[in-house]
Design a binder for these strands. Structure first.
Length: 237
DNA sequence: GCGACAG
DNA sequence: ATCTTGTCGC
């Protein structure tokens, strides 16, 4: 994929915060592809080596509605930023972008393991990377960073709004009966309704949607085996 | 000042 | 995220 917008990630925390405030103003939390017409969905995630010195990033593209893997790419980089709540993007972003750069497909939307606009400054990793790639993106987090939501009904498909100062910033979504919900928020160029529909459409018997699960597995595989040993790469298009 | 805090 | 043993449930 082409990285449309680019900037340095080698910033001090205070500068990173200022950049987030600047980029947040460019996020378009509306529109997006019709869930019924989406053909390719990508998932992105990262894994770290034991000492925490190297980060392994993975991007996997799945065909919808089969959810079969059609392409995947990886990247390994030395960790260059500490984990600071709200600044996750500066830790995982560089490696994820390198992996996205190796993807030939043009996914209709990307699912990230983390927040979209449900973030202190409205720019979680899904919004940030989605903006740099100018591709519709969705944040699918396992825990909330900001805001609060009531518990959704116990059935898959049940939802409850995530609010912050009375404003709806995302949706708690039950992706599997009786299993803890995931927290969905708009990343970039898509509205909340479509984001929720796409997450539910790609969730198959597990709490996390398939794109995210596939990326998580691949990132762990790269971390353990080492990416250079991976000669596999499914192609299509 | 205190607590909370994506991955 | 990673570290780290057993344990409850499908």
């Amino acid at each position: 994929m082409r990285i449309v917008h680019s900037h340095s990630f080698a910033l001090a925390p205070e500068e990173a915060v200022r950049l987030q405030q600047e980029l947040a103003a460019k996020i378009v939390p509306a529109g997006g592809p019709d869930p019924a017409e989406v053909r390719f969905v990508a998932g992105a995630d990262a894994s770290y080596t034991k000492g925490g010195g190297t980060i392994s990033a993975a991007v996997v593209v799945l065909k919808v509605p089969e959810l079969s893997i059609v392409e995947r790419a990886w990247a390994e980089l030395a960790v260059g930023f500490p984990y600071i709540p709200g600044l996750l993007t500066f830790r995982e972003g560089p490696a994820l972008l390198e992996a996205f750069g190796k993807i030939r497909a043009k996914p209709d939307v990307i699912l990230f393991d983390g927040q979209g606009i449900a973030h202190p400054r409205g720019l979680g990793i899904a919004s940030h990377i989605g903006l740099l790639l100018e591709t519709p993106s969705i944040g699918v987090a396992k825990r909330l960073l900001v805001g609060q939501a009531d518990e959704p009904g116990e059935k898959k498909g049940s939802i409850r709004p995530i609010r912050k100062n009375g404003e709806v910033i995302g949706m708690a979504v039950r992706t599997k009966d009786r299993v803890r919900p995931v927290y969905v928020s708009v990343g970039h160029r898509i509205d909340l309704e479509r984001a929720v529909a796409l997450v539910l459409k790609t969730a198959r018997g597990y709490r996390l949607p398939e794109p995210t699960r596939a990326a998580h597995r691949y990132a762990n595989e790269i971390r353990v085996r080492g990416g250079e040993r991976d000669v596999q790469r499914t192609l299509e298009e």
